[in-house]
């Protein structure tokens, strides 16, 4: 275990210098002092105002309220973090996890009357079941990747063009009054280049979004179970000829980890099973493409999994390759549960 700290360079990995209890106790002491500082300052500010209202010190105004807010935040942050650190030291990870699970079970029992213990590592399928389908039971919601990109490009293009317009007006006004700002004039050139590129980027995305059109996907049941058969209904709008269009069932591992001060998420595709295609299709505005297919899940497959830093995610992926448009890919998250076990009492927590 390293005992000396490097003065330069980023700490990498999870290694620690010294006993972890020393760090936790020190952190608890720090937050405890923060809490006390908040209490002392808040009490000072409030009592000064109450017992000496005529005093010019700490008069009610911007400064007074700033002090109250800052002191209150010290109290809240200090107390919360102090209790968290104390529980970290006093309780093992297993005890903390058991207590959290018990609290969740009690909450579920009180609020919804559920007596079965819910699998805490399974993603919640109730959100996916909120949207009923027209032909099949449920309509799947797409991942927001495409629309988010379009929204971001629109916002950036509008903001940048607005800023460029303001600078152009200022520059022209300066020139008209004889104040020739050379630096500002020269700066307008790269700004105009960025504006052109941003606007072009937005219109390309917009054109592709309109040309390919929205994709609607419906499924016969949720959550999915291994060994069962399911139906899919795909409706593709737009005005495009697909060289090939296919629908696949894909599974991904996702992990979130800390690298120095950065938080990174990595994804790896574990498996992919094509359920429809690839085939050539033509989509017309008056006649959207409608496809039905069925697929059977294998008996031995990993179910969906969700925890704080790790996940196993199943998705239905629709991919198309069109001559006029770049390859488009739309994914629809689904939930796969494990095969149910016979109804017996699972072990209870003490």
């Amino acid at each position: 275990m390293a005992k000396l700290f490097r003065l330069f360079g980023k700490k990498r990995g999870g290694r620690m210098s010294g006993w972890w209890v020393v760090g936790s106790v020190s952190e608890a002491v720090f937050y405890g002092l923060l809490f006390l500082l908040g209490i002392v300052s808040l009490t000072t500010v409030v009592t000064w105002r109450v017992f000496w209202p005529a005093s010019s010190i700490l008069e009610i105004g911007f400064g007074f309220w700033l002090m109250v807010i800052a002191s209150s935040s010290f109290v809240v942050i200090g107390l919360t973090a102090f209790l968290f650190q104390v529980s970290h030291v006093m309780a093992s990870p297993e005890l903390r996890s058991a207590m959290v699970d018990r609290a969740k079970r009690d909450h579920l029992r009180r609020s919804k009357g559920q007596t079965e213990t819910a699998g805490s590592s399974l993603p919640d399928a109730t959100i996916l079941k909120d949207s009923p389908g027209v032909r099949l039971a449920y309509r799947l919601a797409p991942n927001q990747g495409d629309t988010a990109k379009l929204a971001v490009s629109a916002a950036f293009a509008v903001a940048w063009n607005a800023m460029l317009s303001v600078l152009i007006v200022i520059c022209v006004q300066n020139h008209l009054v004889g104040n020739h700002e050379v630096f500002l004039t020269v700066l307008l050139v790269p700004f105009a280049v960025v504006s052109y590129l941003a606007t072009r980027w937005f219109f390309r995305l917009f054109r592709r979004h309109i040309g390919v059109g929205p994709t609607t996907l419906e499924i016969s049941d949720l959550p999915l179970l291994p060994g069962n058969q399911y139906a899919l209904y795909l409706c593709q709008y737009g005005r495009v000829t697909f060289k090939q269009l296919k629908v696949s069932l894909a599974c991904y591992e996702e992990t979130t980890y800390q690298q120095g001060t950065d938080v990174r998420t990595e994804r790896h595709e574990m498996t992919r099973k094509v359920v429809l295609g690839p085939e050539q299709f033509v989509v017309e505005p008056e006649k959207p493409l409608e496809l039905d297919c069925q697929f059977t899940l294998p008996l031995d497959m990993m179910h969906s999994f969700q925890s704080s830093h790790n996940a196993i995610v199943w998705k239905v992926v629709v991919e198309g390759d069109a001559p006029r448009w770049r390859t488009f890919c739309r994914s629809f998250p689904i939930v796969v549960h494990p095969r149910p076990v016979p109804a017996r009492d699972v072990a209870n927590l003490n």
């Binding site: 790896h268 574990m270 179910h303 999994f305 196993i312």
Partner: peptide, 12 residues
């Protein structure tokens, strides 16, 4: 319980 099953993946 029924889940989570033991699993050996590349990342997880």
């Amino acid at each position: 319980p029924a889940s989570p099953l033991s699993f050996e993946g590349r990342l997880l």
